[in-house]
Amino acid sequence: MPVSHTIAFLPAPADIPNSVDIDTILADLQDDGVSAPADDVAGLQDVVARADREGITLRVVVLDENPGRDSQLRDIATDVGEQQGGTILVLSPNWVGTSSDALPRVAVEDAQDHAYTGNAVASANQFLDAVVEPDAPYGLITVGLLLVVGAGAAVTWRLRSRRAAAATRVED
């Protein structure tokens, strides 16, 4: 009897750098939604408050150094998000990581692309701006283009019909 082997693909465990203490970050986030060096705290508190006014629960974590890999920032954001909820933005000097249980992943990743500034407060503001700015109304744009193309086709058909009718009258 042949032996059947089942291969299961399991998600890789979170890779949190040894230098990062998630419990310390969580404790720091409790009072104001910010875990960052003292110089950045006031500016980041303003960003978190602005996010709250926009209906977004934002938590910002700033690391003093880059971890070994940029993907570790997303792992930190995911771990913090699982315990805190909301949208988590993790910044290091050169990288950005995010996680959100409230916003679509595509919106968060797009906003993340705007957060590479090297300045934590500017990065967080740009991230938030990108999250709250309305998307272009692509549905309306598509309908408009279809109407324009349809109208052009109708006008072309009408002109060709008239020319054909005029040519038939001339031949008679």
Score class of each variant (00 low, 15 high):
D28E: 15
A102L: 12
L29R: 07
Q30V: 03
Q45D: 15
G150D: 04
G55Q: 06
G81N: 08
L103N: 04
T168W: 02
G139W: 03
L128N: 06
P17Y: 05
V149G: 01
V132A: 04
E82D: 12
Q72G: 06
E171A: 11
Q45C: 06
D172T: 05
V121P: 02
D135F: 09
D113H: 08
V132N: 01
N18T: 11
D15V: 06
A130H: 05
S35F: 12
V3K: 09
I7G: 00
L10E: 15
S4A: 13
L91C: 11
I25M: 06
L58M: 08
I22N: 10
A115P: 03
D39Y: 02
H5Q: 14
I16V: 14
A111K: 03
R69V: 10
I22C: 07
A167F: 00
V90T: 14
P134W: 04
Q83R: 15
D75G: 09
V20T: 09
L146A: 04
A8H: 12
A165W: 04
A122R: 12
D70T: 09
D32K: 08
A115K: 00
I56L: 13
A14Q: 10
P67T: 12
V131Y: 05
D21K: 15
L128F: 13
I22F: 10
G144P: 02
A12C: 03
T156D: 01
N119R: 10
V108L: 07
A27G: 07
D46C: 01
Q45K: 14
A49S: 15
L103M: 13
A111L: 02
D31A: 15
D52P: 00
N94G: 00
L58W: 06
T98S: 05
D40S: 15
S100E: 06
A166E: 10
D75C: 10
